[in-house]
């Protein structure tokens, strides 16, 4: 039976040790800031990026990998002639990355098989899916089984995020249904999520950070059941301390939490949500 190779893009924001351990292939997107172009997570690291961003007067822009970038990654993975490829990517509503991967797939389809999946989400919410699929692949599961894991994860995952300001989402054109809240004079904290079409929407609006945190915990509790255990991802930008506090809150409130992964939001996603963003991903552990 062919083995399965998992490929994703740099916006999955998977911690480096997991990438190595699970043998995941990353295709980087690009980020452009003040006339310089960087390969996401390759030629620029998150903390360096946030430092530059703080000093920059411009908003950063980002671009998707070209189909050729994907073709190269696919060829490299398939060179032993007995590998199936599963390629999981950033929501097609945010980026052309998925489209680019589909094009690459059609360019190599006569040679070997690639299954491209639209995660309908972003950052470590993709990462968590990819990690679970990679674990299944490493355990020797078939391509179909790996695809099933991916689909279940997409279905069952919940993600909530808090941005410090809606400015980045708005300027980058990824604000989705949260646009109505731009420009409010009150300090409104929108709790954002990503819907099934992969579009950002405000799940609730509250005043101030305290209430936002309380509300996210409430939402997480509402959507968990006592007879399943869960794994969490805490996503942060330049605010690791905030992430640590979130880990404590999750420990206190989700009793059946099996694992918590800290994931640093990389330059590309960071360009669109802005510094100060924190997010929580939660998914049930697959049986």
């Amino acid at each position: 039976m062919a083995k399965v190779q998992v490929i994703t893009d740099s916006t999955a924001d998977i911690p480096k040790d997991l990438v190595e351990k699970l043998g995941i292939t990353l295709v980087p997107l690009k980020v452009h800031l003040e006339g310089q172009s960087y390969l996401d997570g390759v030629t620029i690291e998150p903390q360096e990026f946030y430092r530059k961003l703080a000093e920059s007067e411009e908003m950063p822009t980002t671009s998707q990998p070209s189909p050729v970038d994907f073709v190269e990654a696919y060829r490299e993975a398939a060179k032993d002639g007995e590998t199936d490829i599963i390629s999981i990517h950033l929501s097609s509503s945010f980026s052309g990355t998925y489209q680019s991967a589909l094009l690459a797939q059609s360019m190599v389809e006569d040679e070997f098989k690639v299954t491209v999946i639209d995660s309908k989400t972003a950052s470590y919410a993709i990462g968590m899916i990819v990690v679970e699929v990679a674990k299944a692949a490493q355990a020797g599961h078939s391509l179909d089984e790996c695809v099933a894991v991916a689909n279940r994860m997409i279905e069952e995952e919940q993600v909530y995020f808090l941005v410090d300001t809606l400015e980045y989402l708005q300027k980058g054109g990824r604000i989705g249904k949260a646009s109505a809240m731009v420009g409010s004079l009150l300090n409104i904290k929108p709790i954002l999520s990503i819907d099934r079409e992969g579009v950002i929407f405000p799940i609730d609006k509250v005043r101030g950070k305290n209430k936002a945190n309380t509300r996210i915990i409430e939402l997480l509790k509402q959507n968990t059941v006592s007879d399943r255990s869960y794994r969490a991802g805490i996503l942060y930008t330049d605010n690791r301390e905030e992430a640590e506090k979130w880990a404590e809150r999750l420990q206190e409130n989700i009793p059946s939490l099996e694992e918590t992964v800290f994931a640093e939001i990389g330059p590309v996603i960071g360009s669109h949500v802005g510094p100060g963003t924190v997010a929580v991903v939660l998914a049930p552990v697959q049986e």
Partner: peptide, 8 residues
Amino acid sequence: PEVECEVH
């Protein structure tokens, strides 16, 4: 100090 305060 624990209460967020907003003035307008």
